[in-house]
Amino acid sequence: MSDDICFLAEFDGGTPARSALELAAGAADLARESGGAAIGLAYGSGAAAGAASLGAAGASRVVVLSDTDGPAIRLAAAAAATVGDDAPLALLAPATPNGRDLAAALMGLLGLPALGPVRAVRIEGGRVRAEQSTLQGTVITVSESAADAPQPVIILALSGTFTPLEGGSGKAAVTTAPPADAGALGAARIVESHPADAAVANLEEAKVIIAGGRGVGSAAGFEPLHELAAALGGAVGASRAAADAGWVPYQLQIGQTGKVVKPALYVGCGISGAIQHRVGMQTAENVVAINKDPDAPIGEFADLFVVGDLFAIVPELTAEIRRRKGMTD
């Protein structure tokens, strides 16, 4: 058993995903408190080449599970060997499909406690404690692993929970995990891959999200939202109503059955704020809502609620922001 803090680090084409950088920083922070090391478990294409760069992100060493793409769950056996040997205090995992599935398999194979998605993590009295928002944000709980529970505790984190280090330096020591038989967990394979024509921004990692709902009215209606997002360096999201109506691809849907996002700024345009959408964005740091309906539920939990016509206000806002940022056409 150690006081190390492990974290899952996803790679694509040799570049670490934003989640890898965030978790590295989170792990480094916790490792300072616990007195252990921040250890990355890297996977995905180019992980071997890119692993050392996690040093600047906060990792002291990195174990490469695999260097190719594929469902991360197939690496569970390899990860379990490393994690089982070291038995760190905690394992941070991104709340992405790959991250969840790999973390889930580790939980199943090793009988581990799991918490998350968390809003905050800290070490208290030598134990890992995590804060979670539960029951649609109506109750905040603080949890820890039980006294005689095995280590590590798995901590799931949404993007935005930890902040990547800035100005870090140094390279992490890199080792390769011994090959392990994936077993049945390796039997699911991607047999076809169909990328869409236009890449859709990764909502879960966006710092600024401009979301459109029923009030936007049409696919063309999203144009002003795209302009505003561009001016703010953000991404466009949508409510279920807009996605169901076919105005945006489903990947943009935020809410109970879509993505859960935690941006620094969320601007909801023509979104009523029904609970099913709210649970997907209520932990955003700053919430602005623009809606014609003064009684829209979003008006109750937004930080700034503007009653008005989004088609009149959003273009003006875009222009004003561009002016202030000195952006020229």
């Binding site: 790999l102 889930a104 939980m107 199943g108 799991a114 049945a184 967990l185």
Partner: peptide, 14 residues
Amino acid sequence: LVPGAVAAIRGLPL
């Protein structure tokens, strides 16, 4: 995490 854990415990593909 339940689906992934169930797959791992049962030794089945997910």
